[in-house]
């Protein structure tokens, strides 16, 4: 582990090493997710911030196992460098995740969600503009608006009582006819 012995490597060993490195990275990501899960569902944390008790199955032991799996894998492989980096990263990341209060986490999630939606809309508009799909999109919006108007009319008819039942029947008939045409 300390490197006193000379190191040799052959192509197959290097390939194996690359594969195991990828799998270790995957395990590491899962460990971080496990820590985040433990933080989000922790009973004392939720109690301290007056959040409702977590209703699902928390599975703390299994989650802990997932969080510790990369460390065990690195220890098994005799990878001291990876183990130290992993333990250090998890310590800092664990603290960072636990230190952010659930209120701030919710706010950040909301902000991230709306930012992602904004970015998505912008990208979609740009793509539609570039591919000429804007016309198709406009016609779809028009169709949706017409449908909303119809539904509103139906709702108004229902609230007006018997006098408008006939009108509603007309609407149903028209709808059936449209479906037949389609």
């Amino acid at each position: 582990m300390t490197g006193d012995a000379p190191r040799r490597s052959c192509p197959s060993a290097r390939r194996w090493s690359r594969r195991s490195e990828r799998s270790r990275r995957r395990l590491h990501r899962r460990a971080l997710v496990a820590i985040a899960w433990l933080a989000a569902t922790d009973p004392k944390r939720r109690r301290a911030f007056r959040l409702p008790r977590f209703q699902g199955n928390r599975r703390p032991r299994l989650t802990l196992l997932v969080a510790l799996a990369p460390a065990v894998s690195l220890l098994w492989a005799g990878n001291g460098v990876g183990l130290l980096v992993l333990l250090g990263t998890n310590s800092v990341a664990g603290w960072a995740m636990a230190a952010v209060s659930p209120v701030r986490t919710a706010r950040a999630t909301e902000w991230l969600g709306s930012a992602a939606a904004r970015v998505g809309n912008t990208v979609r508009t740009a793509v539609e503009g570039a591919t000429g799909a804007a016309g198709r999109s406009t016609s779809r919006i028009d169709a949706l608006e017409r449908r909303v108007a119809e539904l509103e009319a139906a709702l108004a008819a229902a609230s007006l009582g018997d006098r408008t039942v006939a009108r509603l029947s007309d609407y149903q008939a028209a709808k059936t006819q449209r479906a037949g045409e389609a």
Binding site: L38, A39, D42, K44, R45, A48, F49, G94, A98, A99, V100, S101, P102, V103
Partner: peptide, 8 residues
Amino acid sequence: DLFVAERP
């Protein structure tokens, strides 16, 4: 207390 953030 490992996940208890600073209370408001």
